[in-house]
């Protein structure tokens, strides 16, 4: 016994504007606010900023994503402020009224906005069972890559994206009560060590800016729609679960896992299983009954993608 505790795209452009909401006051001065609203898969997001250019930068990052006209699920707000401890100048990132991050450098700002958005998704989209996983789709079949940070999820998703697979997420598998995986296609966040891999794959990183994201260090972003207007997948049935682990220089290899072992491992990679309780466990186990389960040692990205395409080819012919 083992124990653990544990798009539809409808518009080519985004909407952003100035002073569209109630004005902010910083250091006693009224400042204008820019905002952008967009639909990222099933997540309706609104970014508000008193930092000039951020909303425009964000909308460029998500160029091609649909405009959002109705209410947003999550709202992330950026303003200039002061550190609580040193009183030094900071950028303050808050979501739905709650201060989340205090950021010193401008190049840290956008990654923290993305981070805050993810936190809000975890907190507010509780209708879904949320797993820490990349999700891709091919021929209507969903393949989920659950893994802890640093396992190579994003690079793997990028490699498959470059081969025409459809992208649903590089960080969140959102599974609804019918066992369908829903899209949350955030821009792919690429660590510096993978920049050359992206160039090799022909995936354009948003340039020239590079960002900094906590322990990840320098990062850049890839808009999945750069690979084509249909590069983002729709909700799909989960057919394959593959736990990736990158090993530099390793020969890529797949090995089977039992569904029990898989379910147990996934329970430890869920953001909200504890909140969802038995209902979440029911979603997880029902979903797994229709899926194959594997462990993947990934190495060279081309060889790894070849192996995964071979796996799906075998399943399609089985």
């Amino acid at each position: 016994m083992t124990t653990a505790t544990s798009c539809q795209l409808d518009s080519p452009s985004l909407r952003f504007g100035a002073s569209a909401i109630s004005p902010m006051h910083i250091d006693g001065q009224r400042v204008s606010t820019e905002w952008v609203q967009l639909r990222i898969g099933v997540v309706n997001a609104r970014i508000e900023s008193s930092v000039s250019g951020l909303a425009e930068e964000y909308s460029a990052l998500y160029s091609g994503y649909p405009t959002l006209h109705d209410n947003s699920h999550v709202c992330v707000r950026v303003e200039r402020g002061r550190s609580r401890y040193t009183m030094g100048r900071r950028f303050i990132v808050s979501s739905n009224g709650e201060r989340m991050f205090s950021v010193k450098r401008i190049e840290e700002l956008l990654p923290h906005v993305e981070w805050a958005l993810n936190w809000e998704v975890v907190r507010r989209l509780d209708t879904y069972l949320q797993l820490h996983a990349g999700v891709m789709e091919r021929n209507g079949a969903g393949i989920v890559f659950p893994a802890a940070p640093g396992s190579g999820k994003t690079t793997l998703c990028a490699g498959l994206l470059s081969r025409g697979w459809r992208f649903l997420s590089d960080e969140f598998a959102l599974i609804d009560t019918d066992g369908m995986v829903q899209p949350y296609p955030k821009a792919l966040c690429i660590k510096e060590g993978s920049f050359t891999v992206m160039e090799h794959l022909g995936l354009p990183m948003i340039s020239p800016r590079r960002y900094r994201k906590g322990q990840k260090g320098r990062v850049a972003y890839v808009n999945p729609l750069a690979m084509g207007v249909d590069a983002i997948g729709k909700a799909c049935r989960l057919r394959h679960v593959v736990f990736p682990m990158f090993e530099n220089g390793a020969k890529p290899a797949l090995s089977s896992m039992s569904r029990g072992e898989t379910g147990f491992a996934l329970s430890r990679l869920s953001f909200n299983l504890r909140q969802k309780g038995a209902r979440g466990m029911d979603i997880l186990t029902r979903t797994l009954r229709g899926a194959t389960c594997h462990r993947l040692v990934s190495g060279n990205i081309d060889a790894t993608c070849d192996l995964l395409e071979e796996l799906l080819g075998k399943q399609n012919h089985a």
């Binding site: 016994m1 124990t3 029990g260 329970s267 309780g277 466990m281 029911d282 186990t285």
Partner: peptide
């Protein structure tokens, strides 16, 4: 506790502490 069969194994979810247990 809730009990979930997966093939010839099973998972047990404990609502008290959010723990999951795997039975071979």
């Amino acid at each position: 506790l809730t009990y979930h069969v997966l093939d010839d194994e099973a998972l047990i979810y404990d609502a008290r502490d959010g723990g999951t247990h795997r039975l071979n």
